[in-house]
Computed example of a mutant assay.
Amino acid sequence: MFRTVQDFIEDYRDESQNTLKLLNLLTDESLKSANTPGFRSLGHLAWHLVHDDAGMLRRIGLDFKAPPAGAEPPESAAAIAAAYRETAESMLEAASRWSDEKLLESHNMFGRNWQNGLTLLMFVKHEVHHRGQLTVLMRQAGLQTAGVYGPTKEEWEKMGMTAPK
């Protein structure tokens, strides 16, 4: 649980930059890639990261600019990345207007009472979870990925090293 607004801002600034690194590697062609029938395509998964799909942050009173939850994903990878960047910046700006006391307020979230600091943490974890899915779909679509918490195989090779197995 985040105990200070500044802790959330610093953590989400880093995590959103990692997400943006991946979104910037998508291609328009890759957005339609879906490896399993009935599941999200790469484009739909990327778009899911752009907005607060479950309304978690809106329910706790964080007011920021984002595409509507029901909006269809753009056909342009660059448009998805730009929308993500704008939404993340707006979210961070909105959070900067909160006090640390606001993190202690509770709201019903999925049938449980969560303090806002916990909701923000779960929002970040939600994004990290889907970012992991995104990297798998990107690899399956033949795209390179970017190192998030460590180098990718290609990044190891650029450093003249062999990636650990």
Rank of each mutant, 00 (worst) to 15 (best):
S33D: 07
Q144A: 15
H48M: 03
Q140H: 13
K153H: 03
L103W: 08
D14P: 00
P73G: 13
S41M: 04
L62T: 00
N116C: 11
H51R: 12
F39N: 11
N24R: 15
E157A: 15
K153V: 10
M1L: 04
A83M: 09
T152V: 10
L23R: 11
P151H: 07
S41A: 05
N113C: 00
P37I: 06
A94Q: 14
G61R: 10
L143G: 05
L49Y: 06
P67F: 05
S41N: 02
E105R: 14
R131V: 09
R85I: 01
F2R: 04
D14S: 09
V128W: 04
F8W: 13
N113I: 00
Q17V: 00
K125G: 02
L121K: 12
G55C: 03
P74Y: 05
A71V: 01
W114P: 06
T152C: 08
E105A: 14
H107C: 00
H130N: 13
A163M: 14
G61A: 06
D100A: 02
G111S: 12
M1K: 08
H130S: 12
I9N: 03
P151M: 09
I60R: 00
P67E: 10
M122D: 09
M138K: 08
A94P: 13
P67H: 07
T27K: 10
I80F: 02
D28G: 04
R131A: 07
I80S: 04
L62V: 11
R59F: 05
E89S: 10
S106H: 15
N18Y: 03
R97Q: 15
R85L: 10
A88S: 14
F110L: 10
N35W: 12
R40C: 00
L23E: 12
D11W: 01
I60T: 02
E29S: 12
M91G: 04
E89W: 00
F110E: 08
V136P: 07
T36D: 07
Y149N: 14
F64V: 05
S106M: 14
L120K: 04
K158F: 01
F2V: 02
K32N: 13
L42M: 07
A46N: 09
L42Y: 05
Q6P: 09
K158Q: 14
H129G: 01
V50Y: 04
W156H: 15
H107I: 00
D63K: 13
N108E: 15
D14G: 02
A88P: 09
Q144R: 14
M56G: 03
P73F: 11
L57I: 04
L92A: 12
S41C: 05
A77K: 01
P67W: 08
D63T: 13
I60W: 00
R13H: 12
Q17A: 14
L42I: 03
G142K: 06
A141Q: 08
E86W: 01
Q6F: 08
M161G: 02
R131I: 04
P73S: 11
V50A: 07
T4N: 05
G132R: 01
L121A: 12
L57P: 05
